[in-house]
Every structure is written in C-alpha cells, then in structure tokens.
Nucleic acid binder design. Sequence first.
DNA 1: CCTACCGATCGGTAGG
DNA 2: CCTACCGATCGGTAGG
Lengths: 217, 217
Amino acid sequence: MDVPDWEPRRVAAVAVALPDGVTPAGTRGRILEAALALYAELGFYGTSIRRIADRVGINSATLYAHYQSKEQVLAELVQVGHRELHDRLAAAVGAVPDADGAAAQLAALVRAHVGVHVDYPLLAVVTNSELHALSPEHAAPALELRAACRRMLLDVLARGVKDGEFAVPDLVLAATAIGAMGMHVAQWFGPDQPYGGEQIAETYACLALRIAGAAAR
Amino acid sequence: MDVPDWEPRRVAAVAVALPDGVTPAGTRGRILEAALALYAELGFYGTSIRRIADRVGINSATLYAHYQSKEQVLAELVQVGHRELHDRLAAAVGAVPDADGAAAQLAALVRAHVGVHVDYPLLAVVTNSELHALSPEHAAPALELRAACRRMLLDVLARGVKDGEFAVPDLVLAATAIGAMGMHVAQWFGPDQPYGGEQIAETYACLALRIAGAAAR
DNA sequence: CCTACCGATCGGTAGG
DNA sequence: CCTACCGATCGGTAGG
C-alpha cells in the first residue's frame, strides 16, 4: 500500500479510545487501538498490517498470533462500536418513563447518540465508514444492532405523532435526518473546535425536537 | 490491492453520471466515469488502476496517456463535485430575491443541496468521502469551494436571525446539522427505496426551516 | 493504445 | 514474539 507522506486528515486529532471494559488485555488490546487510529485516519484499505504492527512495536507477523486476519480486527472494532451505540441508546430511552412523553425520550435518545460520537469519534468513524469493507458474514451482527438503533428512534417518533406531541411531514425521513446529524459529529468533533460535547448534545437534542415538530422549545 | 469477491455496497446501485458538460470527450471521459463508480464503491485506496482500465476496456498503462496519476483522476472528480455543488447553491440562493425573506432562501438552498446529492450520489460520495486521499495541493481548490458553500448557508441563517425570521440556539451548529442532513442523502438514495428526489428535497427543506426556528411551517 | 517490465509493498504463512 | 519468506498485486515507466 502506498502511504502518502503528507498526513491526510479524515478525522480530528483526538485521543484513541475504546469504551470501558472492551479493550482486550495486553498486546491484543494494543493492536485493536492501533488499528482503530489507522483505520479511522487512512481507511481499511489504506492501512497495512505492517503499519499497525509498527505502531504497536511488534513484528507484522506477530499480529496473526492475536487476530486471524486484518479484516477480523476491523470486524471487532465495528462490532464494539455498534454495541456501544446500541447499549447507550437503549439505556437512554429506557431511563425516561413513558409518562414523561415522547419529547423527553427523543431528547434523551439524541443526547445519547451525540454522546457516543463525541466520546468515541474514531470508533464512530470506523464503525460508520468502514463497515462496507467487511464480508457479509462479518457485517451481519453489526447491521442488526444498527437496525435496532433505527427502530428505537422510529418508535419514539411514531409514539410522539400518535400522542399528538409531534408532527412530521414523513416519519422515516425525519428519523434519517436526525440520525445523519448525530453521525456527522464524529467527523469534526475534536479539541481544535470551540464546542464541548455536552453543548453539542444539548443543542442537537433541541434541533431534533424541532424536526419532530414538538410544541415545546 | 486485494479486492474482495463479495460485493461491498458503500452506495446504492445508481447510474454512473457526471453533470452535463463536464465529462471529457472520448477515453478520458470514460476513464473518469469508471473511476467515479469504483472510487464510490471501493474507495480510492480500494481501487486499482487495473480495475479502472478493465472497466474502460483499455490496458492499465494507457490510463497514463490521459491522466498523470491515479490521484489526479480523483482530484478531477472531487473538483467537479465541489464545483457543481457550489454553482447550484449559488444559483438557488441567487434566484430568490432578498425581499422574499431568509426562509425562502434557506428552502431554496436546501432543495438545491439535496438536489445535487440525489442527482449525482456517486459523485457526492467520492467528493465527500475521498477528499482526504488528495494531497493538500490537490485538495485546496475543493476546500475553498466547500468553504464558500458553508458561508452561503451561514449567511442566510444569520440574516434570518437578524430579521427576526429565524431563531436558533447556535448558528454554526444549526448550519452544520442542516449540511449533514443533505450530505447523508447520497449514501442511501437510489432506485431501491421509495422516495423520489423531489420529495426528499421538499421534506428536507421543511425540516431545515424547523431547525432554523422559522415561524411558518 | 499496447507489450513488457520496474521496484515496492501487500496480506499472510512456515517454522521456530 | 521473531526471522525469513511466499505469490500476488500495487502504481507507474520505457519504448514503441
């Protein structure tokens, strides 16, 4: 792979981080973190196993003592990313009683969605932009989690419409637009811009409520 | 480059198309279109010059009779994509007199933004997702056009706020969210889904007005 | 527009 | 965890 000598910047310069408790111990974990940084920056095809190994400080052949293939390293990252997103969305919407209304649930959902993308921007970029490099078998579990995330958002929107809290021109397009807003944050969030994660989450929750046509502002 | 035998789907199966009048004549144009399809589907690093040449029906060495490098083919696509976006946004906002108000201008801007992404989804994906593979010199002209597009949106939003037509929690975040919505359309728009381009454009214009806090719905 | 070819690098394996 | 190596493929060039 020809690696350019100028540094392409596909993501902001943020710390390499994985969610608590999911980084494997020892070298396997360090390989995963090195791959995370490189896949995010250069893409799966733009990253060689030798470059990953260099970053860890091991020989490239040693990588195969920990992972079956370059693709399996990506598969683990994509799975971790989707799992984290799913669990945090589920926890967010589950923490708001139905009695509080769809607006409160939508706000919680969007705050959590943005939260994942500002807490783990590298992971989010890899999860969203490199999933296509996985074989269908490797991609399938992540696609299921993604569908579940989508359903949570659609369900809250549909409930709000049914209850008269929301009014949207189209349910699916509104959900798609809200999802797009949040995913995009991972591409520019970083220490080189003036917004904090909380502020973005709060603002985007407000914008999502507007998209939903919620009466309250 | 190891090309997978399962077909990764990074974009919907849409026709390969470039804006009117920008496709070079003859083989040079066919190379550009072949590269467009492959860069969109597999990414710049995932695409070999041999695969581009195969699609055109020429020997890979012949590619260099028409372009200086693989990167220069990408540079031309990225430039065309940004140029088309910029010109259509400028035409859209220019066609609405100031007297009609910021809401009318914002709606026109978003309709045009979505329009480009549904008319040329492959070009939009390459333009947005592969720009990082260009050297700074090759990327610079496109980045200028991108900044100009952003300014158009920010200006319309700012004017609406000043005139009391709009009310946003944060100008930059509102513009970023509106931009993200539109860009994302290129990733799923295609013949395999039920929405037409006009319908998406109209709906997204409505959602953008809501984000802007426009009084009218 | 092609044949023939360059050195470099690719993902991955054998064997220890 | 490393040395040594595999065949394949990479972007690009020489020469016609």
